[in-house]
């Protein structure tokens, strides 16, 4: 009787391991919960942005950054008007996941395009020389970490 119980117990331990779905390939840090909270309450945008950053910070050291996360963060950066940071993270996504290259290139083009439009709009007010100096952004400088 006792050994049967033991086996049953072991069986129950094994079922989640063998039978259905291996988890733990990536470190998600509550990605799904963060996402639905954001959809439930879109006003709390900053919480979502921070939440995405958390996932990156927590998963990067172990090399367990889930697919899509760099791009999600890049996109919220884009929405917040930070074109440069957006591109940095789009590039990270594309470098880590070659499958994303087509989409990332489109998003990068969108961000570049907006930068261009913003510059054109800003030009009449800006001093030409200062503006020209800023025309060559160094996207890697801000990111290296």
């Amino acid at each position: 009787m006792r050994s049967t119980t033991k086996y049953l117990f072991i069986l129950f331990l094994l079922v989640p391991l063998i039978g259905c779905g291996a988890h733990g390939r990536y470190q998600w840090s509550g990605y799904d919960t963060k996402m639905y909270k954001h959809y439930k309450n879109p006003v709390e945008k900053e919480e979502f942005v921070q939440g995405l950053k958390e996932i990156i910070d927590e998963s990067e050291p172990a090399g367990k950054v889930p697919p899509g996360i760099y791009a999600e963060y890049g996109y919220v950066m884009f929405e917040e008007g930070n074109n440069q940071q957006a591109i940095v993270y789009y590039e990270k996504e594309a470098n880590k996941w070659p499958e994303s290259r087509t989409f990332m290139n489109k998003l990068i083009a969108m961000a570049n395009n907006r930068t261009k439009i913003q510059k054109e709009n800003a030009r009449p007010a800006a001093i030409p020389e200062v503006d020209a100096g800023k025309d060559v952004p160094k996207p890697t400088a801000e990111v290296s970490k």
């Binding site: 291996a22 899509g68 996504e93 994303s100």
Partner: peptide
């Protein structure tokens, strides 16, 4: 999450 854990590249759903 389940699709990525299954071994696929999953596009950023919110983006």
């Amino acid at each position: 999450i389940p699709l990525a854990e299954r071994g696929y590249y999953v596009f950023p759903i919110n983006a």
